[in-house]
Amino acid sequence: MPSKDWTVLDFEKPIAELDEQIAQIRRLTQEQGIDRSEEIAALERDRDRAIEEIFSKLTPWDRVLLARHPKRPYTLDYVRVIFDDYVELHGDRLYGDDHAMVGGIATLENRHVVFVGQQKGRDLKERQYRNFGMAKPDGYRKALRLMKLAEKFRRPVITFVDTPAADCSVDAEARGISESIARNMMDMSILGTPIISVILGEGGSGGAIGIAVADRVLMMENAIYSVIPPEGCAAILWRDPSKYKEMAAALRITSADALELGVVDEVIKEPLGGAHRSPEAAAQSVKSAILRHLEELEKIPIQKLVDARYKKFRSMGVFEDISKKKPHKEELSEPEAQEDQCEA
């Protein structure tokens, strides 16, 4: 029964039930040869209305669940649709090949590009093989190696972000997980070629930003982008892991939040009911967004592009400069004191 299917989220159950009804009628149609297309069409309308209704009321925590949805398309699912052709390349030339980070060369409508991205696994075996999409230093160094290849041959870079976090095992620490993420951000900030990043699912903290210092950062409607998982943050800050739903709201991790806070440039709308209900359509939306931005970026001279990239990240953050104002001292402590978006 669909309601016991672990790949169906609680709030998706009414949708799954309607899906099941529709599928049953379709089966009967085939077996009995009776035309029940009107009935099916009516049920499909009901289902789509149910989806719209449910999705208009999603909480931030529901978005977390969608971003981690077991059926959500992963990086290589997008790669297969977006690119006409691709060749995966392996290894960091230093230690090994990290299966949680994939990358290679690809063609995209008469263009040659380099792609990199975290890769999650679908079943238990593949999940372990992909380390749940948590890359080690070897993965970040593989990504940087490929990005430098792109720079050398003047090809744009497309990165796909989908990771709960970078790997924090003893192994990862011993090979310098911090250094690898820091180095990627530093070198990406001056990489002499256009970079577009797409947050596909989980934009998990340092693990995400380690491949997301880009000229354009796009984000799927139901993806999340966060400095820390809400569960961990509730446990650490409120010492109450049960408050993860409240924390998901407080941390402002949805695509709408990220857009409002100025950390992403565009939110890519997902198919009705989420990317997993129509992975092909989701990938087509991503493809057209990538193409649109690439066309813009390709017109900009490299040095201007790199300068603009610096200014973009340079301007992120909100604070106030009290040395620039000359008010009376009392005014300084007022909470409604105006916020100052810093400028580069």
Binding site: S205, A212, M316, V318
Partner: peptide, 23 residues
């Protein structure tokens, strides 16, 4: 580490500072 109370904006400080070091 990054300050949790400023959420994603704190994460972006990692990129900002790394970019400043690069220059």
């Amino acid at each position: 580490g990054a300050r949790m109370q400023e959420g994603i904006l704190s994460l972006m400080q990692m990129a900002k500072t790394a970019a400043a070091v690069a220059r």
